[in-house]
Nucleic acid binder design. Structure first.
Lengths: 150, 150
DNA sequence: GCCGCTAAGTAATAACATTACGTAAAACGA
DNA sequence: TCGTTTTACGTAATGTTATTACTTAGCGGC
């Protein structure tokens, strides 16, 4: 089976999981929201909001930035998408939500390529550090810039 | 001694250390760069670039944004200042540079208040996770959002 | 003095994100 | 089923953050 087909399968998996998640939580995965999510899935990496505007606009119909931002807000709230603050871009969140794990987005400083890793060890270490700092709870997401080994 | 005086003393310490650092590395802490750094030190927390423009501008002389951004770039390269990507703001980096420690900026989601903690434990855990992800080196800075206990 | 380099001035614009307000359709209760 | 409420999206304008391109000024070495 081709890599292409594998990826296609994975795409469909993600879409289906998103659909299920929304169904189970009474969230409405509207056409626009699904198109935005699908575009992020297919891109395989971080995409900027205005890039999404372009990609989802046709000659006939141009979407407004705010439309994309609204969809992104929804997807972020649903935990399906993560915002990369250092890159002003958005990327699908992989892996089943594990409450105890830190979701680390490693971002390649050069290319912007990202890889997501979940780590309970990091979560625990960060939790301790947070305590020191007087923080009672911390986001389960973080972003770390680095260099991909090639 | 008053808290005010203590803070003042701390400010002077930071300024002196910055000065030393630049001297030792043949970096030029020009008047503008020093003013930007001083403003950040005095604010005691994160400040936006355009805020700095306003604060460092007088009626007579208005600084251009690019002037501030250039100073911030310098200070960041020197390791004196850290950019908070989630907040679009800039904050002084405290603590002596420890190569083996992760410099974690905890950011209060409500107020934007920050506290910096250095942790070798987190650094080690992140390094391991990075290896899994195929990253060979990672930034010694990270930003974590959370909630300050009050 | 002149050269070469770095910093800063100036103007414009790019890139990213939000506010405000109107319309339409879905969801909900009586 | 009707009216009300809520949610999503359209539309336009604007706000906020950051950069590019080019020019001018200052400083150090020769």
């Amino acid at each position: 089976m081709s890599t292409r087909a594998l990826r296609k399968e994975e795409e469909e998996n993600l879409l289906r999981r998103a659909d299920d998640l929304c169904r189970q939580n009474n969230l409405r995965l509207t056409p626009i929201r699904e198109r935005v999510y699908r575009e992020l899935v297919q891109s395989g990496g971080p995409v900027g909001a205005y890039d999404l505007v372009d990609r989802l606009s046709s000659d006939k119909k141009r979407l407004a930035p705010v439309t994309i931002y609204r969809a992104l807000d929804f997807l972020r709230d649903a935990g399906l998408v993560h915002r990369l603050a250092t890159q002003n871009s958005y990327v699908v969140s992989h892996g089943q939500p594990d409450v105890n794990a830190m979701k680390i987005m490693f971002v390649d400083s050069k290319t912007g390529e990202t890889i997501e890793v979940h780590s309970t060890e990091v979560a625990e270490a960060v939790r301790k550090a947070a305590e020191q700092a007087g923080f009672k709870s911390v986001s389960p997401f973080m972003e770390v810039e680095g260099e991909l080994s090639r």
